[in-house]
Computed example of a mutant assay.
Amino acid sequence: MKWRALEDDWCPVARTLSLVGDRWTLLILRDCFLGQTRFEAFARSTGATRHIIADRLKRLVTAGLLEQKAYQQRPVRYDYVLTERGKELAPALETFRDWGRTHLPIRRSAKPNATE
């Protein structure tokens, strides 16, 4: 089943996933909660292609989770700011963060010994 097909699903979890259920969208939202607002910052932080970032930002603006605010006119460039609707996702992202800290701790590989 395609993501867009979930938009009209009876299940609210499925409908929510149709909007925010891919890694790039969640990472953009994470960055917004951390205070990032600019396209280039999202691209650097997430590692997603420019096309993906543009697509996800457009979708989040259309859904009313982010608002565009022009900060430059020639060429027009925007800050992307969480709306109240977008801010309501904070508990969900905090739950992901907390679960990840508990169950998926960072595993740093041991540094090789210089004498080996």
Results as ranks from 00 to 15, higher is better:
Arg23Cys: 02
Arg56Asn: 04
Glu40Cys: 03
His51Cys: 11
Leu34Ser: 08
Lys87Met: 08
Leu66His: 05
Asp79Glu: 13
Leu34Tyr: 09
Trp24His: 12
Gln72Cys: 14
Glu67Gln: 15
Gly21Arg: 11
Val81Gly: 01
Leu6Ile: 01
Thr102Phe: 05
Thr102Trp: 04
Arg38Pro: 00
Gly86Phe: 06
Arg77Ala: 15
Lys2Thr: 06
Thr49Tyr: 04
Ala54Tyr: 01
Asp22His: 11
Met1Asp: 08
Thr25Gly: 03
Ile106His: 02
Glu84Pro: 00
Ile52Phe: 00
Thr49Gly: 15
Ala92Cys: 12
Gly21Ala: 12
Thr83Lys: 01
Lys2Arg: 11
Phe96Ala: 14
Val61Ser: 09
Met1Pro: 09
Val76Tyr: 05
Asp9Trp: 01
Arg23Gln: 09
Arg15Phe: 11
Pro112Asp: 07
Phe42Asn: 09
Arg77Ile: 05
Ala14Thr: 02
Arg101Asn: 14
Arg97Gln: 14
Glu84Cys: 00
Ile28Leu: 11
His51Ser: 15
Glu40Trp: 01
Phe42Thr: 10
Leu29His: 03
Lys2Ile: 04
Asp31Tyr: 06
Leu89Tyr: 07
Ala41Lys: 05
Ala14Trp: 07
His103Asp: 02
Lys2Met: 03
Gly100Ala: 12
Arg107Cys: 04
Pro75Leu: 09
Lys111Phe: 03
Pro105Cys: 07
Thr49Cys: 12
Arg4Val: 11
Asp31Ser: 06
Ala92Leu: 15
Glu116Asn: 10
Ile28Lys: 06
Val76Gly: 02
Ala114Arg: 07
Tyr80Trp: 11
Arg30Gln: 14
Glu84Phe: 02
Ala54Met: 04
Arg59Ser: 09
Leu65Met: 14
Leu104Gly: 00
Lys111Gly: 04
His103Ala: 03
Ala41His: 06
Lys87Gln: 13
Leu34Arg: 14
Leu19Lys: 13
Glu84His: 06
Trp99Pro: 00
Asn113Trp: 04
Lys69His: 12
Phe96Glu: 07
Arg23Pro: 02
Gly86Trp: 08
Glu94Thr: 12
Arg15Met: 13
